[in-house]
Design a protein around this nucleic acid. Structure first.
Lengths: 138, 138
DNA sequence: CTTAATGTAATAATAAATATTACAGTTAAA
DNA sequence: TTTAACTGTAATATTTATTATTACATTAAG
């Protein structure tokens, strides 16, 4: 999986950890060690899906739109990373029983497998993850 | 996930479907639309793990070392794709509570999630998948 | 107005995946 | 006993995916 999911979770954890103040994309990007434009792209997606709010202009930034206990990893996974479990298939080969059908069959199996992942991630919200992060620190 | 898992499964399905004869890496590669050298690399891994046997020299090739009902997707996933579910994390940031601990915490969560995937894939062997492929054809 | 922010498209650079080349080792059979 | 057809594998090149960068429009505070 690429790092979009981690970046989204990182951003939300940071906003949850400083829930009293607004935070800029530059601060989030520096904390996550990614480029601010990329951070804004992910933040923009989180805005559109009502996990956070943004305020434009000087003194602007981002803040949580929901309590950290109401942001669940399964939803974030589905928003950002659906399909990433499924193994890529090389080019379809219509001259071959296997080559013409393997992609669709693996698609079926791995979309079910992904449901198990989603069900498991439903056990964690951002507040839970922040708690784990703090425990880690000790 | 990259296509190594699909390629391994494709190879095993082909060998299961033609279980009476030996098949060369060139035939397998052509069926899967990948380069023969890459096919041999995966086949070599399957050999070392006793899923298939190889015979070198003229008239050589590959054949199953086990019955198709004894080759399970969970084992193949663990052999080939362990860790591919875990989201990549950008660079660690020791100046930051989140940035210094997120990787380890996500590692923990996603390695548990991956166990769910493995448990689910334990429901499918190569014979099952071949049956699904044949059903698909109709 | 000017400065500090978000929003986003277009392009460049880097990293990961895949293909290709090259060649050594093995075996059947001409 | 040499040749052709295979596997085995390292080293390199190409392609694709990911990430960073540049550029600029928009918004709002002071």
């Amino acid at each position: 999986m690429n790092s979009d999911f981690s970046l989204a979770v990182h951003s939300l954890l940071l906003l949850a950890h400083h829930s009293e103040q607004m935070i800029t994309s530059d601060v989030i990007a520096a904390s996550a060690c990614v480029h601010p434009v990329r951070a804004r792209k992910i933040l923009s997606l989180l805005c559109k899906n009502h996990y956070i709010c943004s305020k434009e202009g000087a003194g602007g930034g981002f803040f949580l739109a929901k309590h950290a206990t109401d942001i669940w990893l399964d939803e974030l996974y589905q928003l950002i990373s659906t399909g990433s479990l499924k193994p890529k298939c090389p080019k379809r080969n219509d001259d071959c029983l296997i080559g013409s059908n393997i992609e669709h069959v693996l698609e079926g199996i791995f979309s079910e497998a992904e449901k198990q992942v989603v069900k498991f991630l439903n056990g964690y919200n951002i507040a839970d993850v922040l708690k784990l992060i703090k425990q880690e620190q000790n």
